[in-house]
Amino acid sequence: MHQTVHDAVYFEYNFNWTFMLQSRDRINRLGLPANQYTRYYYLMTKGDVAHMGFIDRIVYKKLKDKEKVMLDAIDGQLLVPEYTDDYLQEVKDIVMGRYK
């Protein structure tokens, strides 16, 4: 697949950054030509206040935050945890519109 497909479309997100990274790496493999460009499209739904909106944008932002922590850990010499392990509460807060 990685020799033919160079575009990925994401219709939904997972809170686990590792899953997203693994998915992206499946079409952006080592050994591809230097000029090969891989594109990722992240679709987001729109909501309104009456329906509490949709959480796509918030989940995407959280994934980008996790990516930054990972890249900082790779580039730096010290990994400092910045997130709690209470992901379930975080998900509840996002769904209930209490996430900031």
Rank of each mutant, 00 (worst) to 15 (best):
Y10K: 04
L30Q: 13
F11V: 10
T84L: 11
E67P: 15
Y37T: 10
N35T: 13
V80E: 11
D75T: 11
A50Y: 04
V91N: 03
D72N: 05
E82Q: 11
I94E: 00
A8L: 15
H6T: 01
L79K: 09
F19T: 03
D93K: 06
L79M: 11
K92D: 04
I55F: 05
L43C: 13
F54W: 06
V69H: 09
L78W: 12
P81W: 09
V49Y: 09
E67V: 02
P33G: 01
N35D: 09
Y41W: 02
L71A: 05
D25C: 03
M96A: 07
I27M: 09
Y60D: 01
A50G: 06
Y37L: 13
I58N: 00
L79E: 10
G76K: 13
V80W: 14
R98K: 13
K46S: 11
N28K: 07
D93H: 07
F11G: 10
T4V: 07
A50Q: 12
L43V: 15
A50V: 04
E90R: 04
M52D: 06
M52H: 07
L71M: 07
A50E: 10
Y13D: 01
D56A: 09
N35F: 13
Y83S: 13
N14S: 02
F11R: 12
K46Q: 12
V5G: 10
L32V: 06
Y42K: 04
T38E: 04
P81E: 09
L63K: 00
R26T: 02
M96P: 02
A8G: 13
G47P: 00
N14K: 02
V5S: 12
